[in-house]
Nucleic acid binder design. Structure first.
Lengths: 212, 212
DNA sequence: TTTTAAGTTTACATAATTGTTACAATTCAC
DNA sequence: GTGAATTGTAACAATTATGTAAACTTAAAA
């Protein structure tokens, strides 16, 4: 019986992965938790404890082999398997994502793009053509994508999510301002840009107050 | 002497604000912590405790007045004061942000857009013209913006951030894959899309394993 | 008008989670 | 082999969340 890993640990994993990738590109072969902790600004102990949730990847007296650990974290995150993803909603953010985000390096493979706007349907984006959202059902039946990136207006977000759920999509990257209704068998990552702006606003305001 | 409010509480504030805004648009006048807790999927106790960090906004036997609480949280977040913001880097995400994000409702006012690419300089975006990054210094001296949205390539992110810091910018919304070096007098909100993708990938992988 | 009961916040005590400290066990390099 | 370095882990501390009793408000009933 495995003990469940806390979500706090999971949240930090991508960051470890990022730092290790950088070390790798710098040609650094090995690293101690102490040195990594200095670079990342957290305690060495936490790094060791976090990693130990998944097994012992280091060696006493030596440290961690960067390349090996990098690969192991990739496995933990599931990046070695490429899940098929579709993008629903090509407005602004959605479009930007297709260019900017390196899906292949983050465990996904973008296989379809959908919209309802006739002006957008038929557009070429990267190596894909924007399809009519009406066709999404047959597409899903054919391709069986795992994940959908939701980049649709707030008012239709939950409706679209529900439709996709019924078609078999159980994982969402949600960019819409709406909050998706929770379901047990669905996993969601929300990216609420507005919330980040407001948090930043709070920090700025607080700093100003303290200085006065 | 005020006790500092924990960052866990701050993280939740924008979400409260979002929900209250929705209640407001639905014409709901008052709400109890219990009902709000059911809608938001957290405990009523936590809502009460979070709000009480900033003062008593409710009334026993009555609950919380939605409009009043909405306004108070706006004040706490600092949304009533519009901080000037500039956007640095117009590629993909940066461009999308200008259209999609309602800065005015989140405490900011976008006053300038900058890039180094001659092809982009001069472009009209919303009601602004993309300016040459070379002009950013004099612009900052004139306009005194508070915050910069960093949407530049990873390799130059820290350099640009440092330059802007020297020019007086002490707050950043960072979209670049790089991690900005920490400074005491700087506040940063990071939006690492890649991290979110990887977290989602982990959740999917874990779910699949558990089901097998 | 007064009383009573139901509902709610506030404030505090308790529980659970998360992070840190400390150290024994192990390994590497010489 | 010996000593310095480093992990893995257990015990401890701090933080965060939950549960609950007391005080208060409203509204309905007497």
């Amino acid at each position: 019986m495995e003990k469940p890993v806390s979500s706090s640990v999971i949240k930090r994993l991508p960051r470890y992965y990022r730092y290790l990738g950088e070390l790798l590109s710098l040609g650094i072969e090995r690293i101690s938790s102490k040195e990594l902790s200095q670079r990342m600004g957290i305690t060495a102990s936490q790094i060791r404890q976090d990693l130990n949730c998944f097994g012992g990847f280091g060696q006493q007296g030596y440290g961690y082999n960067v390349e090996y650990l990098y690969g192991e974290i990739a496995k933990i995150l599931g990046l070695d398997f490429k899940y098929k993803a579709i993008l629903v909603g090509v407005g602004n953010i959605g479009h930007a994502l297709t260019r900017n985000t390196n899906f292949e390096k983050r465990g996904f493979n973008l296989v379809g793009i959908f919209d309802t706007d006739p002006q957008k349907i038929g557009m070429k984006i990267q190596n894909l053509t924007v399809l009519d959202y009406k066709e999404v059902k047959s597409f899903i039946e054919m391709e069986c994508p795992t994940m959908a990136i939701l980049s649709v207006p707030r008012v239709v977000a939950n409706q679209v999510a529900n439709e996709l759920y019924d078609m078999g999509i159980k994982a969402f990257l949600n960019f819409s301002y709406a909050e998706l209704a929770k379901r047990d068998d669905v996993v969601v990552e929300n990216i609420h840009l507005g919330d980040s702006l407001m948090r930043l606003c709070y920090k700025i305001s607080k700093k100003n107050k303290n200085e006065v």
